[in-house]
């Protein structure tokens, strides 16, 4: 594979983490403009652990996810009781707050004769983990894919589990969910924590892929994009946001037909989707229809085999 192909694929995978993170909140009924905050927390915490303290990448990813999850749960606990509109504004405010923290943070230590660490708006340079450990960009792509697969596995389990059902109940109607004993607040906080952790995994991977990060990587546009991915792809299944990422980076960016106009095309696409298909391409109805088809096909198969074996009795 060409270097360009590898880097586009890596980018698609890393954006997928933020997109899935935003999606998880959306299927709980919450709009977040600020998942880039947790992507950033992951990036800064993770890079500090490997570049400054010499920890292993896996440990850095887990620790970044944990920190982001705890922070996200805290932000959620403070703001969820206010309702969706306030939560959306709060996520925006919090993300900008965190970005300005990166702008103002200055902490460097000497590692092998170099000064390494976050340096305000100049960013955090020399995250040399991949170089130091001789990990090629090809190998690193596989590491990214592996983590994405883990997260996707989580979504597969989630969407089949009672927790996933409870989350969707909260999204459909909070009052009704509470009336059958499901705590909307607890489930929203839980979803926020998991969403924060997922974004952070992407952030740690992103930082090590780039080898340097700066506060501008974690601006509001990243949040808007991840929201757009989920809204374009649809809210019926986790595949939706992945399709959204594919459309934006896979088609618009890599085909370069729209280079220069990419944002205009993409923004208009989002506006159009919201008018004509408010819950995205793969919305609940479509997913339901597909799953009915599959069920029917499987059912017919089963029936015919049963008919054969049951006939004598």
């Amino acid at each position: 594979m060409t270097d360009y192909g590898i880097s586009v694929l890596s980018l698609i995978c890393m954006e997928s983490f933020v997109a899935l993170s935003t999606y998880l909140l959306l299927i709980t009924g919450q709009v977040s403009f600020g998942q880039q905050a947790y992507f950033g927390i992951g990036a800064y915490v993770g890079s500090s652990l490997t570049a400054l303290a010499g920890f292993d990448l896996t440990f850095a990813i887990l620790a970044g996810a944990l920190v982001a999850g705890v922070v996200a749960a805290g932000v959620g606990a403070l703001t969820f009781r206010l309702g969706g509109l306030y939560f959306a504004i709060a996520t925006l405010a919090f993300a900008e707050l965190i970005r300005l923290v990166w702008v103002n943070i200055n902490y460097q230590v000497e590692v092998d004769g170099f000064m390494v660490g976050p340096k305000g708006s100049e960013g955090f340079r020399d995250i040399r983990y991949l170089l130091d450990n001789d990990i090629s960009s090809n190998q690193y792509l596989w590491i990214i894919v592996l983590w994405l697969a883990l997260v996707i596995a989580f979504f597969i389990v989630l969407e089949r589990s009672r927790l996933g059902l409870a989350i969707r109940m909260v999204e459909n109607d909070e009052t009704a969910a509470a009336s059958v004993g499901i705590s909307p607040t607890r489930h929203k906080i839980m979803a926020a924590a998991m969403a924060g952790a997922i974004a952070a995994i992407g952030g740690v991977l992103f930082a090590h892929f780039m080898t340097f990060i700066d506060p501008r990587n974690f601006g509001v546009m990243l949040g808007v994009h991840s929201l757009a991915y989920a809204m374009i792809g649809g809210m019926g299944t986790f595949i939706g946001p992945l399709i959204g990422v594919g459309i934006d980076i896979g088609l618009l960016e890599s085909l370069r037909i729209f280079s220069g106009y990419r944002m205009i095309v993409f923004g208009s696409l989002v506006a159009a989707i919201l008018i004509f298909r408010p819950r995205g391409l793969l919305d609940e109805k479509t997913v339901h229809r597909i799953s009915m088809r599959v069920r029917q096909a499987l059912g017919n198969n089963r029936k015919s085999t049963r008919a054969v074996t049951d006939d004598p009795g």
Binding site: M221, V224, M263, G267, A271, I275
Partner: peptide, 8 residues
């Protein structure tokens, strides 16, 4: 969200 997209 739509207004945000138009912002872009």
């Amino acid at each position: 969200v739509s207004a945000f997209a138009m912002w872009m």
